[in-house]
Nucleic acid binder design. Structure first.
Lengths: 245, 245
DNA sequence: CGCAATCTTGAATCATTTCAACATAAGTGG
DNA sequence: CCACTTATGTTGAAATGATTCAAGATTGCG
């Protein structure tokens, strides 16, 4: 992949699902991209508290933001897919409050904070698009707060399957009938605030109810209507409607 | 209160705890303020899905962002205090994913989105401060995700008491020894993903352990070290260190 | 003073965890 | 290519943290 080539394709799909991105803005984004690298599965690329002067765009693979407690239990705060900035917020937070880890082998690109500052100075509409992108992360966090606080294990699990379908579809990585989600039941448990044992039982329940089938990193949606109903899924929070920022 | 007078004081305290705000930026903020209004306790001022073309700055009182499920159970995603924009993110989301409600009688000011757009065009550093402010909300959401997913009821409750102490202190509304938090145990339960009955038991436990005493909307911190330990509270996520945005 | 909201406590129930054992799949080196 | 090891998935039974239901106490308010 040449510098900038292909690197921002998924990001552009994600942004253009929400608002227009002009050729000049596209060029500005491309210019902001620094080095492209591979990251091995299970590698934590940024640790909470670390000072960073660049953000990371995920080009391919799955990453997550996670926090842990002294006991060693871990909670994933967000799953990231191709086209997501995994830490665009480090631009204003400086020291991240969480760790960032690759769940699968990943390709990432770095974007220096100086380049982001320049965008806010010279390309305000593009800056608003990036601001939107961090606001979308926050919206996803809020939905997870609702899930963790008030949905039971079955509904919460179903909800995550809905969310990932919708988000992956935006960047062309999911069909109506299913998608690849190459993570373990233990990873899922860390997203859902459950134990992996219980996730296993819940997945069986979804399978036996002919609702959805998660196996070997592959999600099959057997009955979308039923899945949405169980999850009480309302995609409003994913902000899929076009707008003018 | 005259237009702009006093209205942005707490907001300025909040921002200046993190970065400098120039007199010109202060003036720009003041200019962005529209009408100032009172809101009665329990009133929901914005409903999920509504189109809005202004954001709301909380000047006095307590508000919250909440979502609910069909069953009627409600989850509060964030508590807001004086100086917080309760819905700055509506600037890029257009349709909010949650409701916003006053928990106590409140004073609020509206800020038209057109004024925010102008700030992004003409005052990029101020825009970055506002972006920071939404990123801080997201950071708070992530900590709540950790609480709801992995902390038990006692630790989660203690954590919320720590968070509110730290946030209120920034705007001069909390002492080391305690602060006013004029909400009911039922409201607390909606923040914590618990039932009000259980919150009541947990508060008793904190009281009997001489850790903290919440009563009649007043939090007394009896043993800060113990409270922080129980909560595993680390204020890093509140981004209290100064930075240059 | 009386009503409604809020707080408090006990007992039974339930969802999820924990512990433990075993099964299957995947990966590595001889 | 098989034997071995390790990671992941599966299931059952007992334990536990939080909920539910129900009743009574306290507080605030018109």
């Amino acid at each position: 992949m040449r510098r900038g080539e292909g690197v921002i394709d998924k990001l552009l799909m994600k942004l253009r699902a929400r608002d227009e991105v002009s050729p000049a803005e596209e060029a500005a984004l491309r210019d902001a991209i620094g080095k492209v690298q591979q990251v091995a599965a299970d590698r934590t690329i940024i640790r909470a508290g670390e000072l960073v002067d660049y953000s990371t765009l995920l080009i391919d693979g799955l990453m997550c933001r996670y926090k842990d407690l002294r006991s060693g239990t871990r909670q994933i705060a967000e799953l990231h897919i191709a086209g997501d900035f995994v830490d665009l917020h480090s631009f204003s937070l400086k020291r991240l409050d969480h760790n960032i880890m690759a769940l699968t082998p990943c390709t990432v690109a770095t974007v220096p904070h100086t380049a982001l500052t320049r965008i806010t100075e010279e390309a305000p509409h593009l800056a608003r698009l990036l601001w939107f992108s961090t606001n979308l992360d926050a919206s996803i966090h809020r939905e997870w707060v609702l899930s963790l606080g008030r949905r039971n294990a079955l509904s919460r699990t179903a909800h995550l399957l809905c969310e990932m379908q919708a988000r992956l579809a935006v960047v062309g990585l999911a069909e109506e009938s299913g998608y690849r989600l190459d993570i373990t039941q233990a990873d899922l448990a860390e997203c859902l605030g459950l134990t992996s044992v219980h996730v296993n039982r819940v997945l069986r329940e979804l399978r036996e109810g002919d609702i959805a089938d998660f196996r070997k990193g592959e999600v099959r949606i057997l009955d979308k209507a039923k899945l949405w109903r169980v999850a009480e899924f309302d995609p409003l929070y994913l902000q899929l409607e076009p707008r003018a920022l």
